[in-house]
Nucleic acid binder design. Sequence first.
DNA 1: GCCACCATGTAACTGGTTACATGATTCG
DNA 2: CGAATCATGTAACCAGTTACATGGTGGC
Lengths: 182, 182
Amino acid sequence: MWSIPKVAEASDTPNATAATLLGFLQHSNASGYELAARIEHSVGNFWSVTRSQIYRELRWLEDAGYVEVAGTGSRRRRDYRLTERGRAAFEAWLAEGPPPELIRDSLLLFVFFADSASPEARLRVVREAQAKHTARLAAYRALLPEVEPLAPTPALTLHFGIMYEELVLRWLDNLPWSRSPL
Amino acid sequence: MWSIPKVAEASDTPNATAATLLGFLQHSNASGYELAARIEHSVGNFWSVTRSQIYRELRWLEDAGYVEVAGTGSRRRRDYRLTERGRAAFEAWLAEGPPPELIRDSLLLFVFFADSASPEARLRVVREAQAKHTARLAAYRALLPEVEPLAPTPALTLHFGIMYEELVLRWLDNLPWSRSPL
DNA sequence: GCCACCATGTAACTGGTTACATGATTCG
DNA sequence: CGAATCATGTAACCAGTTACATGGTGGC
C-alpha cells in the first residue's frame, strides 16, 4: 500500500474573512486601510477583522486572481478592484453557506466556575458585564434608525445584536449574586 | 535613545483554556484525555477546547509549576494534579475576570450579505440553521433537569444556552425570506 | 491471534492578535 | 517648523483546528 501522493493544491475558496473583503469590494474599490475602516463599523460588530488579516488576505486574493490592483496612492497605498473571478468566488462562498458556529464566551466560563470565585469578584464581573452590554445595546439602538432605511438586510444583523444584548442583560440580572449587595 | 532591553519574561498567567484545565483539576486528578472528555460535555458548549490544545497547555502548566504529574498509566498516559501554586493561579484568573467578548458568527455574516445570495441559498441556509439550533435547544433542555440539581451554578450557563437558542430561532423565523416558499 | 475500536498523544497548518515601522498631513 | 496625529502597512507571536501516529483491549 502506498500513500496517495498529496498534491499541494492551494485551496481556491476564500475563507470567511477574505470573502468579507470581496463582499465589500463589490460596491467600490478600496485599499486595505479603507476596508478595515468600513468593516469595523459594520460587520465588525459580529465578525472582527484586524488590519493585519486584511493585508494578508488581500495578498492571497490577489494571488488567486480574485482582486487586482486598481491604482496606487501615496505611502504604499494600493487600491483593489474585484475581478470577475472574484465576484464568482464570492457568490460561491455565499452559495455554500456558513458552517455551524458555537458560542465562545469567557464570561460563561467565569460563571461556570463562579462557585470558586470570591463574592467580590462575582459582583464586580457582573457589574462590568452589565455596563459593557448596556453600552453596546444603546449603540445598536442608536444605529438602527440610520441603518435600517438605507440597508434593510444588513440591519437584520443589527436586530440580532439588539436582541442579543437584551438577552445577556436579562440573564445577568437574574444571576443569583447579581442583586445581593455582597 | 536606546530601546529598552526586552526581558523575555514568560508570562505566568494562564490563558482561559489553561485556566479551564486548572478548574477541572480542582476536583480530581486527570489525564489530558480525561480532561478533554469532561470538558467536551460541559464547558465545551460555550468554550470549545480540543485535545491538542489541552496537551499543549498541560505542558505549559507543568513548566509553570501549576500542575504536576501525579502518576503515569499505560501507553503514555500521565495524570496531573493541581499544585498549590496552581490553585492560586486559578483563583487569580477568576479574580481578574473575563475580558469583554464579541460575537463572532458567520451566519450573521451571511445575512449581512444576503442580498447578494440566491433565494435558494438564502432559504437553505435558514433551514439548516433552524435545524441545527432546534437540535441544540432540545439537547440543552434535556440536560437541564440532570444538571441543575447537582450543579446549580454551572447550570446557569445552560440557562443561557437555552435562552440563546430560543433567541436565534425567533430571529431566524422573522427573517423576511424565511417564510416565503422561494 | 487478528481485527476493530478506544485511549492517548504529537505535528503541522491556519487564522487571529499585538506590537512595531514609517510616510504624510495638520495645526498651533 | 516641529509635534501630534492619521494613514498605511509588515512581522512576530499565540491560539485553535485538522490530520496523523501509535499503544492497548476486547470480541470473535
